[in-house]
Nucleic acid binder design. Sequence first.
DNA 1: ATGAACGTAACA
DNA 2: TGTTACGTTCAT
Length: 557
Amino acid sequence: MSSSSRGPGAGARRRRTRCRRCRACVRTECGDCHFCRDMKKFGGPGRMKQSCLLRQCTAPVLPHTAVCLLCGEAGKEDTVVGRAEKFGWSLECTILHEIVHPGCLKMGKAEGVINAEIPNCWECPRCTQEGRTSKVKGGRERHLKKKPKPALASAEGPAVPSPSPQREKLERFKRMCQLLERVPDTSSSSSDSDSDSDSSGTSLSEEEAPGEARNGRRPARGSSGEKENRGGRRAVRPGTGGPLLSWPLGPAPPPRPPQLERHVVRPPPRSPEPDTLPLAAGSDHPLPRAAWLRVFQHLGPRELCICMRVCRTWSRWCYDKRLWPRMDLSRRKSLTPPMLSGVVRRQPRALDLSWTGVSKKQLMWLLNRLQGLQELVLSGCSWLSVSALGSAPLPALRLLDLRWIEDVKDSQLRELLLPPPDTKPGQTESRGRLQGVAELRLAGLELTDASLRLLLRHAPQLSALDLSHCAHVGDPSVHLLTAPTSPLRETLVHLNLAGCHRLTDHCLPLFRRCPRLRRLDLRSCRQLSPEACARLAAAGPPGPFRCPEEKLLLKDS
DNA sequence: ATGAACGTAACA
DNA sequence: TGTTACGTTCAT
C-alpha cells in the first residue's frame, strides 16, 4: 500500500518484528486459539500464518536489519547494550521514513512526536520543526484498496493513507506524548481531550477507547482485534527517519504481560504540565501548579471532573494520579471505552468495578495498564470476565474482592491462585498471582476446603479473609486455617465467617491459635451457641479480642 | 466491517 | 533453505 515516501530515506515502512523478550514472546503457543489451530503443527492447514493469540508481542521492534541512518548501528539493545539508555530504540519517522537513534540526533529530540500507534515510530524533530505532518496530501485515499496492486501506490504522496482518521490518531497521540513527556505542544489547542470529565462523578474521559471496541494496536489480532490493528497500521506509513525522543515505552521493551492489543501502555505523567496557569490576558496566574493541586486534593471525583472542564491546564493537572487514589465505577452496567481509558490515565491505586458489566477483554485491557493497582473490587461481576485475572499481571495487588461472583467454585479459584502455566524454566515454583495479597474477599462463593488448601499455599500473607456465606465452609475449614502448618494462622487479623452454617461450637477454641486475630465475624452461624461464643470472647491473654476495638461479632450482635 | 488468505520480510 | 508471522489484500 501505500506508502509513500517521498522523502529522502524513502521507502516503505519497515515491518516490525517481535521483541523476543516480553512475556508474550517468551511463552509457548497455546495450541488452542484460532491461529494455533490453523498451524500445521497443530493439525491445521497453515494458511492464516498468524502467531498465537497469546503470543502477540507487546512491544514490537524494528528488525535487526534496520540501522540508524546516522551511526549505522542497529538499535537493538543487545547489540548496543551499554548505550541502550542513551540511544534507546531506533525510531522510524512516519514522514521521512528515516530510522535513527534519538541519541544520535543533534537537534533536540524532545521536538519529536512519538507515534503511539505504530511501534518505534515518530514524527522526527526535523519534520515537527518544519511543520510537516504525516497527513500531507490531503486526499483521503483510503487505502487504495481496490485493485492497485500491492505495489506501493506511490501515487499518493507521502502519505499516510487515510489522512483523516489517521490524523486524528496522530493528534491524539501527540497530546498523549505531550502530557507524558512534556514535549512542547505544537498543535495548540487541539481540542484536546483532556476535557473529559463526565458527569457522573467518576468520569473518565477520553479519547481512545480501550474498550471492547477499539484499541489501537494489536488487539488480539485475529478475532476481533486484528483488524483494528491492521487498519491502524496501514494508516500510517512511517518512514525513516528522524530523531526521537525518549518515550515511555522506551528502549528495552518492558516485560509486559500478554495482552490483547498493542496499545502502548503509558504511565501517567508524574506531574502534568504545565507548571503555571496561563491566563487569557497573557500572564500566568500567580498560584503555581503545586498550590492548585493542594486545592484539588480536597475535591471529590465529581468536583474534579467539573474542574477539568474549566480549561486545558486544569484538565491536565486534574489527571494527576495523586488526586485519584481510588476510583469507583461500581454498578455501571456498561463501561465505555472512554471510561476505561480515563481510569488508565489516572492510574488509581484502588479500583471498584463491582456489579458492573465489565467484560473480560476490558478487564484484561485495564489490568495490563494498571500495574500499580493495589486494590481491586470485582464483586458481583461475572466469572467470565473475572477470569481475566488468570492471565493478568497483578504485581502490586494487596486486596482482591471476588464476593458473590456466580459460578466460582474450587476450579475457578484454582485458576487464579496457581502460578501461570506458561512460566518458563528458570523460575521453578513460580509465584502465584496472589502471593502478595493481604486481603481476600470470597464471600458467597461455592468453595470447599480444597480451595482453602490452595489459599494456604498460594496466598500465605493474608491478614484479612472473608469467607462469609460460603456454604461449604465448616469446622474442618477452621482446622485447616488454624493448623500449625497454616501460614495464615500467624497472619490473620480479620476473619469473616458470617453465615457459614456448618460451623459448630467445636471449632471455636481453634481460633485461639491465631495470635493476631482481632476481629472474627460469626454472625448468622446457626449452629453456634451463645455460650460457646461467650467463652471465646472471654478468652484470656493468649486469645484474641483483648481490646475494646477488637471484637468478636456474634450472631445478633 | 470483519475474517481469511497470502506475499514476503525477518531471521535462524 | 526453512520457519514464522507482519502487513496487505481479498472475500463476504
